[in-house]
Design a protein around this nucleic acid. Structure first.
Length: 155
DNA sequence: GCCAACGTTGGC
DNA sequence: GCCAACGTTGGC
């Protein structure tokens, strides 16, 4: 089983929004970065565990846990000229962008902020804490996953 | 294939 | 709102 972290701006789609969806499940659309796409398309498997991260907000940080419940399939928002994620270079017979379905598991008992994550040496190799990194989906090692869950209880 | 210009991300 | 970092675009 693999572990991941996925970013979303809470203004656009928050963990509360995910929790409120039917079956607490939603497709993770709008990824338009090749590195992120490749991980989602090729490596994310049903049952993988995912941190939900709120970005571009008052306190950026990890706010909850989710799980992959459907593996990659074409992101239909790329086909819709009305969508802000429209990409004319993607078509149903030759899709360029993909998404997975994600299910809410739980909120963390507090926001584990980016500034806190940066304080911990065992997490220093996470792309998340490195300056200028803009990946919206990134792998998390088992050690990092466990460390962060233990942090959640710590404060 | 290079690289300048431009757009986006996202912390602060 | 600012701006650093980075990805993408497009002229050449």
């Amino acid at each position: 089983m693999n572990y991941w972290l996925m970013k979303s701006e809470p203004n656009a789609f928050s963990i509360d929004d995910l929790q409120a969806m039917p079956k607490q499940t939603e497709h993770w659309d709008g990824v338009r970065n090749y590195q992120a796409r490749n991980m989602m398309r090729d490596e994310m498997k049903v049952g993988d565990q995912v941190f939900f991260y709120h970005s571009n907000c008052e306190t950026p940080g990890i706010v909850g846990l989710m799980e992959v419940v459907r593996e990659s399939y074409p992101d239909h928002t790329a086909f819709d000229p009305q969508s802000k994620y429209f990409d004319p270079k993607s078509s149903p017979d030759k899709p360029r962008w993909f998404m997975v379905d994600i299910k809410y598991i739980r909120h963390t008992n507090r926001v584990i902020s980016l500034s806190e994550l940066k304080e911990h040496e065992p997490l220093e190799n996470m792309p998340l804490v490195r300056k200028g990194n803009r990946l919206s989906i990134m792998p998390v090692s088992k050690a990092e996953w466990d460390y962060i869950l233990q942090l959640e209880e710590g404060r």
